[in-house]
Design a protein around this nucleic acid. Sequence first.
DNA 1: TATTGTTATACTCTATAACTATA
DNA 2: TATAGTTATAGAGTATAACAATA
Lengths: 157, 157
Amino acid sequence: MPADEKLQHVLDPVDAVAQLTFVVDGMLQRRCREEDLSLIQLRLLGILRDRRPTMSELSRFLELDKSSVSGLVDRAQRRGLVRRVPSETDGRVSVVEITDEGNALVGNASSGFTADVQELLGRLPATDRDRLVVLLTRLLAAHARAHGVDLFADLQQ
Amino acid sequence: MPADEKLQHVLDPVDAVAQLTFVVDGMLQRRCREEDLSLIQLRLLGILRDRRPTMSELSRFLELDKSSVSGLVDRAQRRGLVRRVPSETDGRVSVVEITDEGNALVGNASSGFTADVQELLGRLPATDRDRLVVLLTRLLAAHARAHGVDLFADLQQ
DNA sequence: TATTGTTATACTCTATAACTATA
DNA sequence: TATAGTTATAGAGTATAACAATA
């Protein structure tokens, strides 16, 4: 059809959201594969970037059974990505720390992912992009509110 | 802070996209769990909804090794969700079909997921929602174009 | 010979249940 | 007794390599 007759097609709303999720998910998976990490190993390292949780805490953060976390940490430790440190105050407890190597992998994967999403958003004109981010923020804030959470809880005084 | 001083916070663009992906992904996972399906089993059944592919074709669609597809289809068949039908024109080939039970599961999961996303989008005022979908469409179209694909290839005459 | 599909094997990821050690 | 964590076991999902059957 001629350009001046071109209708701007609009995706079905659910398809639009689902497709975006699919695309972004693929980006994350590709960045994981580059570092030879599974998604769950990346999540583990991501948590350890700014925390030194116990195994139980990891179990809650990752919503996995404690036995699953044992195996997860075993494999990460075998690769030298994390280490277990015995708690000094409670003889039952192990604290999990990330190693320099683990930090390098999670850093690579997440900066790669950030670059992917920036490249994606960079395909829109700046005004569209800004409007999109505002609308996404409103959407996520409304979703969070509906679940009794404040999206900006961090920023409150 | 008082309402009339309220600044509208805007998420970091990458965070906004990542968080949306996380939320939508969670919805899909929950709907899978309700039907006792893994994500990959749901994808398998989703493909079979409107196709009768061979094992090789499934391997390409799912981007899995043919041996992985063998196992996947084995387990789905054991549950009565799919069946293998020998090709009549090529003795090496198996065609995979979905059963009524498989169709019911994938129908439930995808209509539940659709409802989830509609509920999510329904939290925005209609004008915001419409603008968001337009912007997502533009974003996905630009992404597709950058990868040599036409998002609306189906609709062309 | 090439293609289609399965099987053998190995590894990750996950859960349940049983266990050990510490509190 | 209760809690923190590991181990034993079982099953899904994935890949590589070797194989059988058909083209």
